[in-house]
Design a protein around this nucleic acid. Structure first.
Lengths: 221, 221
DNA sequence: TGACTAACGAACCAGTTCGTACATTAGTCG
DNA sequence: CGACTAATGTACGAACTGGTTCGTTAGTCA
C-alpha cells in the first residue's frame, strides 16, 4: 500500500510477442464471429486483451489484415482435423458415413468458425482470395473422399455419378446449414436444429442421406 | 431557362407516401444484402433514393426497424411463391422432386434474400424474433410437404422416418449452401457452385438425393 | 554494463455515422 | 379559399471509430 519500492514493471509490463499476438487472435476471433466484420470494433478487441490497440496495428497492420489472420488460423484448425482422418481401412459405405459424421461433429464443435465463414461469404470471400496462405491449402478431406469414392464405385457399391468436390459440398451443406441457420430456422419453424437431444437424429439423417444417394438404384428414375 | 414562373414544386417535390416507402425498402434491401446490417449506411441508403434520410426515420423509425421491415418483405415474397405450389396432383416422388426444384430455383433467383438470411443469423435472428409479423407466418411449403410425405408413406413408397420440418431443412440446406457459400467454396475448391452450365447438374443432384433418402431400403443398414 | 532494439502504452485525431431539430410545402377538407 | 396536417428537405451535432503520433521500457548482446 504505502509505496514500497517495486522498481521493475510498474504496470506489470511483460514482453512476450508470441503470447500477445495469440491473445489478440483469440479475442479477435470471438469478436468478429460475434458481430461480423464491420460490426466488430478494434477498440473492443483491444480492450479484451491484456494489451492495447496499438499492438493490433503493430502486429497485424489493420482491421482487414487482422480478420484475414483470424480466417487463416480458423481454416488451419479444420485442415489439421481433416489430416487425421483415418477411415480408409473401412468399407466404402462405413468410410463415407464416418467421414460425414466427423464433418458433422466438427461443424457442431466450432460454431465460431461457421459464423466466420458466413461473414466471409457476405464479403464475397475477398480476404480468402487475397490471402496467399489460404489460396494454396486444398482440403485434405477431398483426397480421402476421392479415394473412397473410387473404391466404392469399382466395387459396384456406389452408383452415383459424383466427384469428391460435389460430395463434399453435399455433406457440408447439411452440417453448415444446421449450425449457421439455426436461429432463423428456429424462429420460423419452432425447431432447434442443434438441440442436444436431436443430435443423434440429425447425425443419422445425414449419414442415411449420403449413403442412400451414393447407393441408390439409379435405373429406377 | 430564364426563370419562367414555375411556381409549384421548385424541387420537383412530390408527395407519395407509398412510393417513397417502397423505394426506401427496395434500396435498403440491396444495401443491407450488400454490406450486412452494421456495414450498411443509412446515409448511403438515403442517397440512393429520391428522398432523404429524414424520410427513413419518418417512416421506419430507425436503422433497426428498417432492417426488420426489409426482412419482413423479403420473407413475404417467398411465402407468396410457396402459396402457389401446386404439386399434389403428382405422385409423391414426382411431387417431392418438383418441390425441391422449386426451392432450388427460388434460392438461385433471390441471392439477396439468401444474404439477408445469413446476416440475420449472424445477429441470431433478433429482428425476426422481435417481429410480430414474422412470428406468425409458418411456411405454406411445410403443409404441402407434410401431405406429400403422408401419401408417400401410406403407399409404401417412402420408407424414411422424417417429418416435414426435417425434410424442409434437408432441401433448404443444399439450396442455401450452394448460393450462400459460393464465394468461399469457389475460392477454396475452385468450383463455382452457381455456374450456369452446372445448374442442371446440381438441380438433378438435389432431387436424386432427396428421393434416394426417402425411398431407400432402410433394411440394408 | 551500457547501448540498442523489439515490444509496448497513452493520448490524440480526422473522418464518419446515426439520429434529430427546425423549417417548409403539398394536398385535402370544411 | 383558407386552415390544417401529412409529407418532405436542410442543416447540424454528439458519439464513435479506425488509425497514428510520440514517447517509454524490457530484454539482449557485444
Amino acid at each position: 500500500m504505502t509505496s514500497v519500492e517495486e522498481p521493475a514493471r510498474p504496470n506489470g509490463r511483460i514482453r512476450d510477442a508470441a503470447r500477445t499476438k495469440a491473445e489478440i487472435l483469440d479475442v479477435a476471433t470471438k469478436e468478429f464471429a460475434r458481430a461480423g466484420y464491420t460490426g466488430a470494433r478494434v477498440d473492443e478487441i483491444a480492450a479484451r486483451t491484456r494489451t492495447t490497440k496499438r499492438m493490433i496495428y503493430y502486429y497485424f497492420g489493420g482491421k482487414e489484415q487482422l480478420f484475414t489472420a483470424v480466417l487463416e488460423r480458423a481454416y488451419s484448425v479444420i485442415r489439421e482435423a481433416e489430416q487425421e482422418l483415418d477411415v480408409e481401412h473401412l468399407d466404402p459405405v462405413a468410410a463415407i458415413r464416418r467421414l460425414a459424421e466427423l464433418t458433422f461433429d466438427h461443424h457442431e464443435a466450432h460454431p465460431d468458425f461457421i459464423r466466420l465463414v458466413s461473414i466471409e461469404n457476405i464479403h464475397e470471400a475477398e480476404h480468402i482470395t487475397a490471402s496467399e496462405e489460404l489460396g494454396r491449402i486444398g482440403s485434405p478431406a477431398l483426397d480421402v473422399i476421392g479415394r473412397i469414392l473410387e473404391t466404392g464405385r469399382r466395387s459396384g457399391l456406389f452408383t452415383a455419378d459424383v466427384d469428391a468436390v460435389d460430395l463434399h459440398a453435399m455433406i457440408s451443406s447439411f452440417c453448415f446449414f444446421r449450425v449457421a441457420n439455426r436461429h432463423t430456422f428456429g424462429a420460423l419453424f419452432g425447431r432447434d436444429l442443434v438441440a442436444p437431444d436431436q443430435r443423434e437424429h440429425y447425425r443419422t439423417m445425414l449419414g442415411d442421406m449420403v449413403i442412400a444417394y451414393l447407393t441408390a438404384d439409379r435405373a429406377a428414375d
